[in-house]
Design a protein around this nucleic acid. Structure first.
Lengths: 165, 165
DNA sequence: GAAATATGAATGAACG
DNA sequence: CGTTCATTCATATTTC
């Protein structure tokens, strides 16, 4: 069983998540999580728990400047609120113009004992699609069915955005 | 340039780190990390994050040795006497199966030159790890806050209410 | 020099 | 919510 045990968000999903995190402040409500998950499902495999964890991790990572070295940047003792402005931080940085990557060897199966020394390394796996997503309307379904997919996450349904507008 | 993209501890630093690790500090607190980093700074360049990561990796590595991964074949490379009786607590078990994604959508055609004129292929080729690597190298990791890129991400107006302008 | 390995770094998931 | 564990990724190092 070589299935992925760990969810890995696709770039599109990441994009959406980042955007949501950027505009959202804190922990999304449960309904929101469901909604987001539903939308993200259109772009890849995802569960509500994944989205929830992602937001939690994201927030925890954002608030890691004064408390601990935690995981992330080197050391940021600034008192500025990074929660909304961490745009300046660059996490996934790749070194300067050294990205002249060798030809894509599309096989990193390290456990494989076979010597897959395929001499042909013609990169062929790059069909990067447009980043534009047809992510249109997020279903504003007023379906308050309470699914216990992730159990009680302790999410507060305090501000239901749907009711606000 | 071409400097150490990755921190490499000097032998002296490694010595200190190992000694500290041997003392039984399974989880050094942040203050400890700071202190240790201070100490290590006298022997070479280091950041708190480095020390933190080092301890994390060290601990994870030790745990792995004890339990034995048993990936696939009987790839048992035991014989390490370095593992001490530090913290052989019970390993955190994670009952899988919850997020076992079906492999139906994992067969991403990388070549993509087929006559698949399907209109929506946004996330078609973004599941395999090898592609992720290539994408990283190419810096295709989408900019989180790129407005025009995210353009019609379709953050529906319901969500925009957080965007208090 | 390429493959195999060691290991630092990133991150999803879980615990308290 | 903050912290920690576990897994993966990327790169430095070693080996052949």
């Amino acid at each position: 069983m070589t299935a992925r045990q760990r969810w890995t968000p696709t770039p599109l999903q990441l994009q959406i998540l980042e955007r949501l995190f950027d505009q959202g402040i804190g922990t999304p409500s449960r309904q929101k999580i469901k909604d987001i998950t539903k939308e993200l499902s259109q772009h890849g495999q995802i569960a509500e728990q994944n989205a929830y964890n992602w937001f939690q991790n994201r927030r925890a990572r954002s608030m890691r400047k004064q408390h601990g070295v935690g995981v992330g940047s080197s050391n940021n003792k600034n008192g500025e609120s990074e929660v909304e402005t961490e745009t300046l931080n660059e996490k996934r940085k790749r070194p300067d113009g050294l990205l002249a990557l060798p030809d894509g060897n599309n096989n990193n199966n390290l456990i494989g004992t076979t010597t897959t020394t395929s001499p042909r390394h013609e990169e062929l796996c790059f069909q990067c699609p447009e980043m534009r997503s047809n992510l249109h309307l997020l279903g504003v379904h007023s379906d308050p069915r309470d699914e216990h997919l992730v159990g009680n996450l302790g999410l507060s349904d305090s501000y239901n955005l749907y009711d606000h507008v």
